[in-house]
């Protein structure tokens, strides 16, 4: 797909009409071409802005009463009831929120205060918990930077595609928008990192290969944590100086989340099955 073909597909992509190879080619091009990606994000931003700011308004009752009166109906309550039927908007998924531009991602990460534990923890490189804590601290302190900045889940998915050997999930976090991603490795094992923000608050997501962690030779977690995860429950730790750390598994992927908020607050933003909660240690 070239830039001209991309531009012709932008509107269809914004409205989620692209499928199959067309969709893949579109997001591949968006990943490769920053200018086209910007054009796509600009149009998507406008749609998102309208959805967020211009809510569906319910027809005023006095209007519905007037219509009933004029059409000779004797049952205005029935009309009012009928007016309560779901509007078209209610069928839409509220998937897209305000897109945060890349400049804010980098700006936010750079200006945020370094956390007390901002050292890379290199002595514990194989420890998943230490790795994710170090990456989180590094992103906040600014010495780790996203390799790609985008609010589009599809663009971020394309960034990881074919590079990890395990599925990277760009989750929809309630009230949070993805803003950037980074891919690195520890002992040859790919590590995927995603950053989400909302009103100046950050949720960091870490993902790696669950099978490799279970194997324990290149990456490891404490046995008790592994036991919790193998039982299908998330591991939750609130001892991170006001931050909460949650680990859970999704198929072949081990996912971790860290944020400066309480357990319940963080859980409320994550796409974890309620049946598996709570799993606090």
């Amino acid at each position: 797909m070239n830039c001209r073909q991309f531009e012709e597909q932008i509107t269809s992509a914004v409205d989620q009409y692209l499928q199959g190879d067309d969709r893949k080619e579109f997001y591949d091009h968006a990943f490769r071409c920053p200018q086209c990606r910007k054009a796509f994000e600009r149009e998507r931003f406008i749609k998102t802005l309208l959805q967020r700011r211009l809510r569906i308004v319910q027809t005023p009752h006095e209007i519905s009463h007037a219509i009933v009166a004029e059409t000779g109906s004797t049952d205005p309550d029935a009309l009012l009831h009928s007016l309560q039927a779901p509007s078209p908007r209610s069928h839409r998924t509220a998937r897209f929120f305000l897109a945060v531009a890349a400049v804010f991602v980098l700006g936010f990460l750079v200006v945020s205060s370094p956390s007390p534990d901002s050292s890379p923890l290199s002595a514990q490189r194989a420890d998943v918990i230490a790795q994710s804590a170090a990456m989180y601290a590094g992103l906040l302190a600014g010495w780790m930077k996203p390799q790609i900045s985008s609010a589009e889940p599809e663009v971020l998915e394309a960034f990881f595609e074919g590079k990890t050997g395990f599925p990277v999930h760009v989750h929809s976090l309630r009230d949070y928008t993805p803003v950037g991603a980074l891919l690195n490795e520890a002992s040859g094992v790919p590590l995927a990192h995603l950053v989400y923000t909302s009103n100046g608050k950050t949720v960091y997501i870490y993902q790696t290969c669950w099978n490799t962690v279970q194997d324990g030779r290149k990456l490891k977690i404490p046995d008790q944590v592994k036991k919790t995860l193998c039982a299908g429950r998330p591991y939750i730790d609130e001892s991170f100086d006001g931050r909460t750390f949650i680990l859970w598994t999704e198929g072949r992927t081990l996912c971790g989340a860290i944020a400066r908020m309480g357990q319940q607050d963080l859980l409320s933003h994550l796409p974890l099955a309620e049946a598996s909660l709570p799993g606090a240690r």
Binding site: P60, T71, A78, S82, L83, S87
Partner: peptide, 20 residues
């Protein structure tokens, strides 16, 4: 209520929000 009124209420009026 006439059948026309009943039909109108059940079929047309639920779309009032769209039009409004």
């Amino acid at each position: 209520k006439t059948s026309k009124q009943r039909e109108f209420e059940s079929e047309a009026l639920p779309h009032a929000d769209l039009l409004y």
